[in-house]
Design a protein around this nucleic acid. Structure first.
Length: 746
DNA sequence: AGCACGCCGACT
DNA sequence: GTCGGCGTGCTC
């Protein structure tokens, strides 16, 4: 018998289906989706491969080699996953192996039953020994940066995340910078069988929720259906998900529920556990290889058939998959940043279409692309308009910061915001202050000559970390000491600039000496569960002012918050990104949704310079429809998604010249194929090639970056452009990466 | 990506 | 004569 296989390890140039024969001794029932070893190439080197089809006819056109062995006979990939692999190759121009690696855990060597962890030495942390003299190796810096960010972590996680071997850890241990410890197996892994189930009762749905549930479940006719649950925060989308999952589960279907970031949604996970007990498995990026494999095995074997997880969980091998639900579908975390740069929304659509199931999205501020699908009838729109508890929508006030300047107020707090904050504190009510993460990270500036310290390896300003008294490059992770004086003009007036969360905290302390302040950002959320700690401390009223980035808008309900301030709502509008307006609208709407979640009326103060921008105006009125109408007109006139697909080719090399030369070559190559109708499907009708430009971050990790932006009528066109780019890159020995419809344009 | 083939210059 | 440079092309 003959089979077609694809290689786990290959490149675009030779990635295709290869035909092999199966010797009679190896014949088995379940070959489709199995993992096999095959002899490959002139030297017959043993390669890992996956069976993608079993051929009935024996008359293969060429000589076929027999496979060597069957590694895993039970299908490692289900039929719908095999289909997904093919679609991903087409859509993202990745290899079969690239796609498959997202679907199977890569447990290369057996691991011990204990979980060894490493953490930064306390004395090291307190003495702040961070300086360039002692730690010079990039790998060691990476580890320290990782541990600073995540706290105590599993060794396997560190090795994987920092791309290092254990020798680096040994060195750091010898230098007394880190320590090791061991945690018991059970601490990390729940014992699902002994998990006693105080199963949560289902709540009574209100009429809107009931209507949505009925519409979704009424359509179980074995046809593909796609829904958008459009509901403001607090309208009870979660309960709709749960009742749908419950019904499908009763009927024997499996379900995948995606959430933006597991660590921000502990309630969702615990409610799922309470509701569906031992049938639930949780998948997220903090799992180590063995934990991941265990969860995956339980799902693949059918021991559990409900999966909650982050982006990567969309590939789970769930039996009889009935639905994929994506909560907060507008979140950027659903788009992968590494090749293949898939979007979980697209993956879910492909999978559910193939199995004729349900694809359900939920959001208060849907992606423009998603809402457009509703308008064109491809997605069924279900609206939840009422908040469950009888709370009122907050009142919104827009402050023009230019007028504040004219009035002589150069503080980051407008007069109105300061007044409202004082009022709230007097009434013993709570305040949330949002700052825009992007463009707001603090950096160091010489007040005399204007010098800003930059990373030696990346063309970005270094971020000032007050807690570690150091400068850290957010691109490569290198840590620098804080200069005492300006290296250019030797002056000492070199200080922090830009309103990072830390500066805002300090300014708030000065303005409101009586406020009890909590801050939530990268620095205060190291270690597991720290998000949760800060949020619940605030919920309990241990502070009356919480300052943070968008992350404070998620998860918790704060009934005593009556005032929300957005310090600079329009910072993102200046970015060269076609999604800037959409992101601004989403930020404001989300932030506003945090005000007045109970009987007390809420108030929102939006500070901005571009107060006339439609994203700010519509957000202040909580008018999604109005925003959408204007935004979709803009997208159409400019030829942006969903009307056309944007492709981004990034060429990088260790010299400026070679990167630019390769980028030019790619561009001429692409232009050539436009004019040559015989060679490809590309034409000037379906593809527009922009000029080469320096990437906004021109250098990262010592590599120079140029980009070419493409506008095409569909994504398949882009995929063929990427193949051309890839071929040129191989010739010119440079690196290329590509992205379709990126969420960030840098 | 590897790896073999193949076609030229330098060398024991 | 042969060793080895790396340009080109193939991998069931």
């Amino acid at each position: 018998m003959n089979i077609k296989v694809v290689l786990k390890q290959s490149t675009l140039q030779f990635d295709k289906e290869y035909i092999y024969s199966v010797p009679p001794t190896l014949l088995s029932e379940n070959l489709l989706g199995a993992k096999v070893l095959v002899p490959f190439g002139k030297s017959d080197k043993s390669e890992e491969a996956f069976v993608v089809s079993v051929m009935n006819d024996e008359n293969s056109p060429f000589y076929v080699k027999p496979i060597l062995s069957i590694e895993q006979p039970n299908p490692v990939l289900f039929d719908d996953q095999l289909n997904l692999v093919k679609e991903m190759c087409r859509k993202y121009s990745c290899t079969h192996g690239d796609a498959i690696k997202l679907m199977v855990p890569t447990l290369s060597f057996p691991q011990e039953k204990t979980n060894k962890t490493a953490y930064l030495n306390d004395s090291f942390l307190s003495e702040m020994m961070l300086n360039e003299g002692e730690i010079t190796h990039v790998n060691q810096i990476r580890v320290m940066e990782y541990l600073l960010e995540y706290g105590e972590s599993l060794i396997s996680d560190i090795l994987g995340a920092c791309q290092i071997t254990s020798s680096t850890l040994t060195t750091l241990y010898r230098k007394k910078i880190i320590n090791f410890s061991e945690r018991a197996y059970d601490e990390v892994n729940q014992d699902y069988e002994s998990l006693q189930l105080p199963l949560e009762e289902k709540l009574i749905a209100n009429s809107e929720q009931k209507d949505s549930i009925e519409k979704i479940l009424g359509n179980l006719k074995g046809e593909y259906r796609e829904y958008l649950l459009h509901g403001i925060t607090g309208s009870g989308k979660t309960e709709v998900y749960f009742q749908v999952i419950n019904e499908l589960h009763q009927q024997g279907f499996g379900v995948i529920l995606l959430v933006p970031e597991i660590s921000l949604t502990p309630q969702m996970v615990s409610r799922m556990n309470k509701r569906f007990g031992k049938d639930v498995r949780v998948i997220h990026s903090r799992l180590n290889q063995r934990e991941r494999t265990e969860q995956w095995n339980d799902i693949r074997s059918g021991t559990a058939n409900i999966v909650v997880g982050a982006r990567c969980a969309v590939f789970s091998p769930v039996h009889n998959l009935g639905a994929i639900i994506i909560d907060e579908e507008q979140e950027t975390t659903y788009k992968s940043q590494t090749h293949p740069k898939y979007n979980a929304l697209d993956i879910a659509r492909i999978r559910m279409r193939h199995v004729n199931g349900l694809f359900i999205m939920g959001s208060a501020t849907p992606n423009v692309e998603t809402y457009y699908r509703c308008k064109t009838g491809r997605t069924i729109l279900l609206s939840l308009r009422k908040r469950i508890c009888e709370s009122q929508l907050p009142t919104v006030e827009i402050i023009d910061l230019r007028e504040e300047l004219v009035a002589g107020n150069r503080s980051i707090f407008s007069r109105a915001l300061r007044e409202k904050m004082q009022e709230a504190f007097i009434k013993d009510e709570q305040v949330l202050l949002f700052i825009n993460r992007r463009g707001y990270s603090g950096f160091l500036l010489c007040r005399d000559c204007g010098y800003v310290p930059k990373c030696q390896h990346c063309s970005v300003s270094l971020t000032y970390h007050m807690t570690h008294k150091s400068l850290i490059c957010h691109y490569c992770g290198k840590i620098y000491t804080l200069p005492r004086k300006c290296p250019i003009c030797q002056n000492h007036r070199i200080t922090g600039f830009g309103a990072g969360t830390q500066q805002i905290e300090q300014l708030s302390k000065m303005e409101f000496p009586n406020a009890r302040i909590l801050r939530m950002d990268q620095d205060t959320t190291t270690g597991k569960g720290s998000h949760e700690k800060i949020l619940s401390a605030f919920e309990k009223g241990e502070a009356n002012l919480l300052i943070g980035t968008q992350m404070i808008a998620k998860g918790h309900d704060f009934p005593n918050v009556t005032l929300v301030g957005i310090l600079s709502a329009d910072l993102m509008l200046g970015l060269p990104d076609f999604r800037a307006s959409e992101r601004t609208f989403q930020l404001i709407t989300q932030a506003a949704g945090r005000a007045g979640r109970s009987i007390k009326p809420g108030h929102v103060v939006i500070q901005a310079y571009n107060v006339d921008d439609y994203s700010i105006l519509y957000a202040s009125r909580q008018d999604y429809e109005g925003f959408f109408d204007q935004e979709i007109a803009y997208r159409q006139s400019m030829g942006y998604p969903p009307f056309k697909s944007i492709g981004l080719i990034m060429v990088s090399s260790d010299t400026e010249d070679s990167a630019l030369i390769a980028a030019r070559r790619i561009r001429t190559e692409l232009e050539g194929s436009l004019k040559d109708p015989m060679s490809s499907s590309l034409s000037s009708e379906n593809l527009e090639i922009m000029d080469i430009s320096k990437a906004p971050t021109h250098m990262i990790r010592n590599r120079y970056r140029y980009r070419i932006i493409l506008k095409a009528t569909n994504e398949i066109i882009l995929a063929s452009c990427f193949v051309i780019a890839q071929t040129v890159a191989r010739e010119k020995k440079v690196m290329v990466s590509f992205d379709t419809n990126p969420y960030q344009m840098n």
